[in-house]
Each structure stands twice: as structure tokens, then as C-alpha cells.
């Protein structure tokens, strides 16, 4: 049965057809849309002209040129990547000790500790953002506490709401489990005898960490980094709610083209750029992962 062709198609065709229609086709439609004109009232203009009984193509490079016209889109892009890199690094710094602690704790507690990481993750992510909006509110307790302390020290007050700091904290908060879980999965598999052997040979705590644990955990870090980096890159809700006047990311501009400005072609251009970046990151990550595996 397993070798028969009909069985193979029975299994693979339905999901393949579905994904071709609802994933591959829309992606190509977007690519095509990036070369079309915007419709008079939004949407897309026809891609052909009917002139004297002949059909001619009516496509343009205008939308792509607009991307290169000024440096503002490049800067937007770099800023988005900057947020994604910063979030990834912070998640790593915060997630590593946590994952290590869980992996090194007794079997009995491990599941519970892990569940405690996942639990907040199961509440809707808008709720989690909302929680920080309460905290960052200038009338909120935290901000008043910080400002009270700053005043005592004779320094000026700070505003947390609508600042890059607020955005970053929220981005880290929402994506932290994406880093912790793959890291834990990796750390848990480490052979602790290696550490014991190193200790017997006289290696200190930090030396043992840097020479054994860290290199062994690199695949987990790579996986976690991809899982954090990509969703942050396309984020629009957090900048929308917490970003202030300077917190715009590429996701917001894409959303703006489709949901406000009614400029689908330019929105498609930006989406394509984001697609290519995400693909590049994934490829780079899996390349790095593969090289390590091979070592």
C-alpha cells in the first residue's frame, strides 16, 4: 500500500491544493500587484488596456521606484531590523538563565516551571500589551515611583508611555517564550557528565559554561532567535498602541497602505521586501544550524 502512487496522492494532494490556493497564489498575486497601478478609489486598476480592439499591458515600475526615491524607506527598514535585533538579544539575555535553570532543576519541578513560562503566553497577546499600557501610563504607579526616585536624586522626570523603551519591553515580553522553549529543549539534552568531567579537571564555573554549555546550546539559540526575530519584524500592533510618534515599523506602513491609504500596489512592494527579508533570515539561520550540526 505504501508504495502505491494513488496512496501518495490521496495523502498529499488535498493539503497541497489548499495551500497552493490560499498561500502560494496570494503571494504571487501580491508580487504581480506590486507592478500594477492603484485603482481610482482604491484596490487595483486593470492590468491591461483595451485600445482599438487590442489588449495592451498596463504595468509599471513606479511603485518600486517610490521605494528607492528617498532614503526614508531604507531608514524605516533599518529601524524595524534594529528593533528585531534588540528584541532578540534581550530575549536571549533574559531567556537563557531561565531556560538553564529549568533544564537543571529536578525532574519533578521541570514540567511545572516550564508550564509557568507558557501560561502567560496563552493569554491573548493584546491582553499582554494592554497590561504594559497600564504600567507605562504616566498616572500609573510604576512611572510615578520612578519619577519620585528621580526627583529625589535631583533628575528630571521620564515618560515611559509612547517611547521606544516601552515598545521594546513589550516586544520582549510578548516574544520571550519563543526563545525560552527551544533553548530549554536544547539545554535539557546536554550530557551533564561533561560538566562533571570538566569540574574534575579543575575548570571553574564560568569556564565550564563558556567552554561546554554555551557552544552546545548554539543550535537552540539559533532556533529561538529566528522564532523571535521574524514575528517582531512584521509587528504592527505594538507600535500602533505604544509606539508614539517615532515608533513606526514596516508592519505599520504596510497596514497603512491597505487599511488607510488605499494604495495596494505600494503595500505589495513593501510586503515583498518583508517576505524576502524573512526568507533570507530563515535561510541564514538554517545554514548556520546546518554548519554546526556538521561540525
Amino acid at each position: 500500500m505504501q508504495g502505491k502512487a494513488w496512496y501518495k496522492y490521496l495523502l498529499s494532494l488535498p493539503p497541497m491544493a489548499y495551500l497552493l490556493i490560499f498561500f502560494a497564489a496570494p503571494t504571487f498575486i501580491m508580487l504581480f500587484a506590486s507592478f500594477r497601478y492603484a485603482g481610482e478609489y482604491g484596490g487595483l486598476a486593470p492590468w491591461y488596456l483595451h485600445e482599438g480592439g487590442r489588449l495592451t499591458l498596463d504595468l509599471t515600475l513606479e511603485n518600486w521606484q517610490r521605494l528607492l526615491e528617498t532614503d526614508i524607506y531604507l531608514r524605516l527598514f533599518l529601524r524595524s531590523i534594529g528593533y528585531a535585533v534588540a528584541t532578540t538579544l534581550l530575549c536571549m539575555v533574559m531567556g537563557y538563565p531561565l531556560a538553564l535553570m529549568i533544564a537543571r532543576s529536578g525532574r519533578k519541578h521541570r514540567d511545572l516551571l516550564l508550564l509557568l513560562v507558557i501560561l502567560p503566553f496563552w493569554s491573548n497577546f493584546l491582553v499582554r500589551i494592554y497590561a504594559w499600557m497600564i504600567i507605562f501610563s504616566p498616572a500609573g504607579a510604576l512611572t510615578r515611583m520612578i519619577n519620585g526616585a528621580l526627583e529625589l536624586l535631583g533628575m528630571g522626570s521620564v515618560t515611559l508611555m509612547y517611547s521606544p523603551t516601552a515598545m521594546l519591553v513589550c516586544l520582549v515580553y510578548v516574544h520571550l517564550p519563543f526563545m525560552v522553549l527551544p533553548l530549554y529543549a536544547n539545554l535539557e539534552k546536554h550530557d551533564l557528565d561533561l560538566l562533571d568531567a570538566a569540574q574534575d579537571l579543575g575548570a571553574g564555573k564560568w569556564r565550564r559554561f563558556w567552554l561546554i554549555t554555551w557552544p552546545l546550546s548554539l543550535p537552540g539559540i539559533t532556533a529561538g532567535s529566528i522564532l523571535v526575530f521574524i514575528p517582531v519584524l512584521g509587528m504592527f500592533a505594538i507600535p500602533d498602541l505604544l509606539g508614539g510618534t517615532n515608533g513606526i515599523m514596516i508592519g505599520n506602513v504596510i497596514k497603512q497602505q491597505f487599511m488607510e491609504s488605499r494604495d495596494w500596489p505600494f503595500g505589495s512592494v513593501l510586503s515583498m521586501v518583508l517576505t524576502v527579508t524573512a526568507v533570507a533570515v530563515v535561510l541564514l539561520g538554517s545554514r548556520l544550524g546546518a554548519r554546526r550540526e556538521g561540525r
Binding site: L233, M235, G251, K255, A278
Partner: peptide
């Protein structure tokens, strides 16, 4: 590829491309 790509792409891309479709 078809199974893995949607997981790896930022969600907003799937959102807008399905809207257009």
C-alpha cells in the same frame, strides 16, 4: 515548502495577501 513557509512568514504578510485574494 508549502507547509513550513506559512509558519516562518510574518503573519501580516498572510493577512494582507489573503485580503487581496
Amino acid at each position: 515548502l508549502l507547509v513550513l513557509a506559512p509558519i516562518a512568514m510574518p503573519e501580516i504578510l498572510m493577512g494582507v495577501s489573503l485580503l487581496v485574494l
